[in-house]
Nucleic acid binder design. Sequence first.
DNA 1: AACAAGACCTGCATGC
DNA 2: TGCATGCAGGTCTTGT
Length: 286
Amino acid sequence: MPELPEVETVRRGLAPWMEGQVFAAVKVRVPRLRLPLPDDLGQRLTGRRIGVLGRRGKYLLVPFEGDEVLVVHLGMSGRMTVNHEPEFAPGRHDHVIFDLAGGEGHPSTTRIVYNDPRRFGLMALCPADLLETHPLLARMGPEPLDPAFDGAMLEGALKGRRGPIKGALLDQSVVAGIGNIYACEALYRAGISPRRKAMTIAGARARRLVEALKSVLEDAISSGGSSLKDHRQPSGELGYFQHNFAVYGRAGLECPECTCEIGETGGISRLVQSGRSTFFCPRRQR
DNA sequence: AACAAGACCTGCATGC
DNA sequence: TGCATGCAGGTCTTGT
C-alpha cells in the first residue's frame, strides 16, 4: 500500500493524537510481522512520552522519551488508525494496539491500532542517534521532497545503471519512498518511457523527472494519499488521489493528455517489469 | 555491482 | 456454490 504520500498522510493524521502523549499500555496480539516485533516492546514504550513524529522514505518514525525511536513500516497492507471507543474489540488483523494516556485536551480513551492483513510491515526500536545507521535505513537514498534533491543528484544515483528507469525508481537507495504507483505516475508526468535505460537520464531529462516526482508526491499528499484496497488515513477517511491517476491501473483507457481516439494508440499500456505491473502512455513517454 | 526472481502473507476478483 | 488462478501499494534474500 503505502508509498511516501500514504505514510506522510498517516504521520500527519497521527501527530495531533500522539505527540506529547504518553504510552499507557501496548498490547501485542500478533508478534510476527515481516520481522518479529521486539519482545519487550510494551516494556520499552510504557510510560514514555512521545516526541515529534517523523518519516524517512516509507518508514514512520515515532521518537519517545529516552532518546529512542519506534520505527514502523506498513508493508503492503498496513494501517494505523486512531480509535476512541470506550469498549474496543480488536478486529482480525489488529496486531498491535497502543493505548495512550489521555492528556490535557485529549479524550480519556485514545488508542492507535496497527492493522496489517498481509503482515509485510514491521516495527523496530532504535536509539535516536543511530537511526541513520540502522540496517533498515542505512542505504536509503535522498528524500525526494528535500530541496537538495535535484537533477544532478538523481543523475548521479542512476550512473552505471543499465536496467530500466522504472526499476531504478523502485530501488530505495536511488531515491526514498517511491513505489509502484508513483514511479508510474512520475514517469508519465516527465514523458519518460519506463523502459528507458536509467543511465540515459541526465541533464534536462533528469531535472524533468525530479520535478515530476516532487509534484506527483506533493499532489498525492494534498489528497490524503491513494486508497486502493487498504490505505486509510488515521481518521479512517479514504485518500482520494487514486481518482487523479493518469496511468496507474488504467490499461486500455484513454491517456488524459492524448486527444486522439483510443483505437489509434491503444490507450494506456500495461507491461510487466521485474514481475511488477507498469502502466504508461506509449505516445507521450519516450 | 546490478538485476531478476522467489519468498513472505491474506484478500479479493475472475472464470470455470 | 465451490474451487483454482492471478493479482495487489514492499522489500529481503538468493542466484546469475
